[in-house]
């Protein structure tokens, strides 16, 4: 990466830190705006099986006690994840405790094998810890069956993978709206939502292009659009710039920052590049499966 780009990023980060206090106030307001729509989805997810009618109050079993933690969108409590590799047990995470605030942009860093991606997978409900709990927006996901987790991911979480992970047989727009389709949105709704978000990531003129006809950067933008199309509560990104050159990486990270700042999007990103992490509000460092 050239020094020029690095300095520019640093400058931007500095300015962002100065704006942080203002941002937090703004975020509160935005969260309120987003809240209405998200609550709709939330209610859908936390639907009937968990609901108990108690007079005029509706209690949701999986909910933790609201109050002091209401600003915490993700809480990982004592997460342990062990993998079996042949005869050997590898402890990828050895009791990690982590809290991520609403609207926060968090980077997870650490050397290879430190458990960064494993932690992201636990927090993003792509994997299940051997022990410990993951609470997302006051919903304890640790006892959720796989099917419920799938529904939860569909409505509440977004993912950006290292190698874009687009479905090659779907064009940009279709890749973006497939999850909206699955949510049961109408054709008009999902098509316009896809067009809107693809325009927001700068691909308004490539709605019907297949991934094979796009550059890496463009594919990653489609991937970001897909992750954001359904207004997720949290966006998880696993080394989103690993396959991109510096300039394209910067464009992608700028996009993240833009959505984080303007929409109050909570982002959890794994990276091993310091200058990528500089975009984040906070860095969680891992080493040998524990927080540094």
């Amino acid at each position: 990466m050239g020094n020029e780009v690095r300095n520019k990023v640093k400058e931007e980060v500095k300015t962002e830190h100065e704006d942080k206090v203002k941002k937090e106030a703004k975020d509160e307001m935005k969260n309120e705006m987003k809240g209405e729509m998200k609550n709709e989805i939330k209610n859908e997810m936390k639907g009937e099986p968990e609901k108990k009618e108690n007079g005029n109050k509706t209690e949701i079993e999986m909910k933790t006690t609201p109050g002091e933690n209401s600003d915490i969108i993700i809480e990982g409590i004592d997460i342990v994840r062990t993998f079996k590799m042949g005869e050997v047990q590898v402890r990828a995470l050895r009791g990690v405790n982590v809290k991520i605030r609403r609207g926060e942009f968090v980077a997870i860093m650490g050397p290879s094998g430190s458990g960064k991606t494993t932690l992201l997978n636990q927090l993003g409900l792509l994997d299940t810890p051997n022990s410990g709990r993951v609470i997302i927006d006051e919903t304890d996901t640790s006892r959720m069956p796989d099917r419920e987790k799938g529904k939860f991911r569909l409505h509440n979480l977004g993912y950006v993978f290292q190698d874009y992970a687009l479905l090659p047989e779907l064009d940009a727009s279709e890749n973006v709206y497939i999850s909206l389709m699955m949510q049961g949105k109408t054709k008009e709704e999902y098509e316009s939502a896809a067009a809107e978000i693809l325009t927001a990531v700068g691909l308004g003129d490539r709605l019907h292009q297949l991934p094979s006809k796009m550059s890496g950067g463009q594919q990653q933008r489609v991937s970001i659009a897909r992750a954001l199309a359904h207004n997720p509560r949290v966006l998880f990104a696993d080394e989103p710039c690993a396959n991109l050159d510096s300039q394209t990486s910067k464009e992608v990270l700028d996009l993240f920052k833009k959505f984080n700042k303007e929409m109050g999007q909570t982002i959890v990103m794994v990276t091993h590049e310091d200058w990528h992490a500089a975009y984040a509000d906070r860095v969680i460092r891992l080493k040998d499966g524990i927080l540094e």
Binding site: L154, L167, P168, S179, M182, R226
Partner: peptide, 16 residues
């Protein structure tokens, strides 16, 4: 395989 994994990850149900 990978596509199926991605589909599952983004919340497409297994029976779908």
């Amino acid at each position: 395989k990978r596509q199926i994994g991605v589909q599952k990850a983004i919340g497409i149900e297994q029976n779908v």
